[in-house]
Design a protein around this nucleic acid. Structure first.
Lengths: 217, 217, 217, 217
DNA sequence: CATGAATGAGCGTTCATTCAT
DNA sequence: GATGAATGAACGCTCATTCAT
């Protein structure tokens, strides 16, 4: 891509040769190893109780090496959280292309959210423990991700209301927060107790409660 | 030493009466001032960014004084969180003596939970931001409180199921987590955005969703 | 590797002629580029605030390359200072072959010294800011150069005294230090304030003061 | 002084009892010990080669203690340099009250300047080695001090010119820089070689050269 | 010759905790 | 009981230097 530009700048090194992955870039193996190590260590001890040296050790690199790949300790955590949310949103976006029923869409979101536990337990712990921390640098950028998540749910709820599937006399915002909070709490509880569950089945149960309520008719 | 001063200050109250409240115990005024200061400061800057000296300054005492009342910095935070949960449970227990309808009981819990924001904003911030921290010393004992909260809700749900008010085909655990999570997330969102709301009205909305679901009949 | 490129650049000069200048020796182009870059960067930020990587970048070489041409970071600075003093002494020596009047000799030294600002401003800054640093490795070898400078002036003064042009009742050492210090301070002041001046005119003024004093007769 | 104000704020602690010297203030013994240690260590190894830990060790305190008395490592050096210049200016100001002849005034300045070597050799080294360093934070505030010194000399020179004692056809700025430079260089040379001299006699010699020139009549 | 990723010792600074007063 | 000066371990981060390629 943009071959003209590149060729102009580095005429002697054709794109065909190691065009991908700059040595210390996001794609390199060490980059990923550091990220994974950081997620593990921070999940175990918390951000502030995880010295950079502990992350480096877990990743099998020297302390200083971390700073070849990331600007700061903050940057490592930020990157890990960003990429998790990004993956979540990409997955949801992809599925929504073929899944149009609002009920099914909500259930899909619930399921993907709950699956995170199984996919990467450390990351799930980290998301539960650090994302809402009050340290301003984390809180502020994390908040942005949560807002985006809520917005996606709100849009689905609004569409469901327009289509007459959902009640119009409840606030889409309240519903979105309730749904996110319910799922997040189930996940959180599992994270803290070490319980495992079936994501699909649990998602179905949550949706049943959300859609029909718990009161007998 | 300095017996004159002491006598001057306490002259009106014989030692025999103050015996139950040790000078540095939970009842003393300074004890409470330190706790309040800690909650405020930690709510503003986070636990790890709140030096003990900042808490001492806010409380109007010397740094060292804190260690006459608490074993450690951890201990201060732990105590603050403990007492908040204790108060919550006492309040719920008290109300349940006269409030027996499971629906009303759940709504009462929701309302008290949501009210915490208005009652002590700093404490609400702290509960949202520090309680789930992964720093082991906080996470582990916090978990105990959350479990107790969930258990109270589960019992109410189970009673509702026995009384035929709630559906029997949903798990009381899932319902409890959903309810706690929904309320907590609404509170959390308000904390982060600085929004204010009407606790009673919001509690009613949440209960409406939880009891009746969002699906049109 | 990349033999084509190399051959293109050096095609006109057979190896037999380049034999005297080892590839990484003082005569090579890269050697000089590194020295120049070092002087510039150090003049801008100071020795201790100039990472080797910054010098390498400015010189357009890799960090490691510097160590092919110099033993250490110290060595780069030392070499730069050495070569500046050497050039100064060579220039003075050359001129003295045809310039024999002690007054004219002193004025020539003053002028060359003051000209350094115009010739290479970065080098002038570096000479004013780093040469007297207390970091032992710099201070000690710099001192040697200053001593040599003073000695040249002393010899001129002594010759002037022998020739009856200069008073015999003042110490040649004191005079030499006064002259060096006066010129150096004028240069230093210009370096720090960014002022520019006419080297010849300023040299004349300094010599006027030194030769005739400031007192009215 | 300002007893009303003080009494208002601290009514219970009469001024007569330890009215001077706040515990960590500039007057305390440890404050001075740290300053002295810093001057010594920095004079020996240079600012950037003097870890705070080395200064602390020399002062016989823990590393952290330094930060109870100074804001930063910079602050220690800055304070040392400031107080030296302040003392110099106070001394000159004081003497000028009774010493009015411009020639005598210049000679007094020269003498005080040269005496610094004997008074505190480490401080003299530090003044020679760090004051003109290029590290911006030092250079900029140091420059301010040098400018003030030069200004004092210029004023004396101008007064001498008005009184007809000094030639009017030489620039007061050039004369001031020459004089400062000459003295500073003599001092510097003594500092680097370890030579000792008689301040009064040397000051007299410098003034002789400056006033009468080195040329025979 | 040239590269630049990797190293790890060393830096300035913070802060929970202690203890002499 | 109360103080706050003092401690020193621990932190995040930098950078001179090496060495496999």
């Amino acid at each position: 891509m943009r071959p003209g530009l590149k060729r102009l700048a580095k005429k002697t090194r054709p794109d065909s040769i190691r065009a991908e992955v700059p040595a210390t870039g996001p794609g390199s193996e060490k980059y990923q190893r550091i990220l994974d190590a950081a997620v593990e260590v921070i999940a175990e001890h918390g951000y502030f109780s995880s010295p950079v040296s502990a992350i480096a050790k877990r990743a099998g690199v020297a302390d200083g090496t971390i700073y070849l790949y990331f600007k700061s300790k903050d940057d490592v955590l930020r990157t890990a959280i960003d990429s998790t949310f990004d993956k979540f949103h990409r997955q949801v976006e992809e599925e929504f292309r073929t899944l149009h029923d609002p009920r099914a869409q909500l259930e899909y979101i619930a399921q993907v959210h709950l699956e995170s536990h199984a996919v990467n337990r450390s990351m799930a712990v980290l998301m539960q423990t650090e994302v809402r921390q009050s340290a301003k640098f984390i809180a502020e950028f994390s908040h942005h991700h949560l807002v985006k998540y809520i917005q996606v749910v709100r849009e689905v709820v609004r569409r469901g209301q327009q289509e007459g599937i959902f009640r119009r006399d409840v606030s889409d915002g309240v519903v979105a927060h309730c749904m996110f909070g319910a799922i997040d709490e189930l996940l959180s509880s599992a994270v803290f107790t070490g319980r495992v569950y079936d994501s699909k089945a649990t998602a179905a149960q949550v949706m049943d409660v959300l859609l029909s309520g718990i009161q007998t008719k």
